[in-house]
Amino acid sequence: MSGVLRGILGARSLLRGPAITQRAGLVTKPARDPVGPTETAVGLTVFAVAILGPSGWVLANLEYYKKRE
C-alpha cells in the first residue's frame, strides 16, 4: 500500500515542477527586547483564562446542562 502512495505522490510532484526548498529563519541571538515580569504575568493570565474559563463555565452550569432535553 505504501508503494502505491509513493507512486501517486511521485507523479504529483512531477506535474508541479521542481521542488522549492524552504529554509527556516533560525536566529541564534538573544531577543532584542527582554520580556519583563509584567508582560509575562499578563500573558500567563490570558492563557489561563482562555483555557480554564470555558471549562469553568460548563462546570458552574452543569445542572442546567443536565436538565436540558
Results as ranks from 00 to 15, higher is better:
64 Y>W: 06
46 V>F: 00
35 V>K: 03
7 G>A: 15
2 S>D: 01
42 V>F: 10
5 L>N: 15
57 W>V: 14
1 M>F: 04
62 L>R: 09
32 R>T: 14
32 R>K: 15
28 T>F: 14
23 R>V: 10
55 S>C: 07
36 G>F: 01
38 T>I: 13
68 R>H: 12
57 W>I: 13
3 G>P: 02
45 T>N: 05
64 Y>K: 07
12 R>Q: 04
6 R>V: 12
61 N>P: 09
20 I>W: 01
37 P>E: 02
20 I>A: 05
43 G>Q: 11
35 V>T: 08
61 N>Q: 12
34 P>T: 00
63 E>R: 15
42 V>P: 08
48 A>E: 02
59 L>E: 04
37 P>S: 03
62 L>D: 07
17 G>I: 01
65 Y>D: 06
59 L>I: 10
62 L>N: 10
56 G>A: 14
56 G>K: 00
52 L>M: 13
11 A>V: 05
49 V>T: 14
60 A>G: 11
23 R>Y: 06
42 V>C: 12
31 A>R: 08
37 P>V: 06
10 G>S: 10
7 G>M: 14
2 S>K: 13
51 I>Y: 12
38 T>V: 14
56 G>I: 04
4 V>G: 04
10 G>Y: 02
52 L>D: 09
5 L>I: 12
59 L>C: 00
30 P>L: 01
62 L>Q: 11
39 E>D: 11
24 A>K: 12
68 R>I: 10
55 S>N: 09
35 V>D: 11
5 L>K: 15
44 L>K: 10
19 A>W: 06
65 Y>W: 13
55 S>V: 12
69 E>P: 10
21 T>H: 01
40 T>V: 02
3 G>W: 03
57 W>H: 13
40 T>F: 07
49 V>F: 12
63 E>M: 13
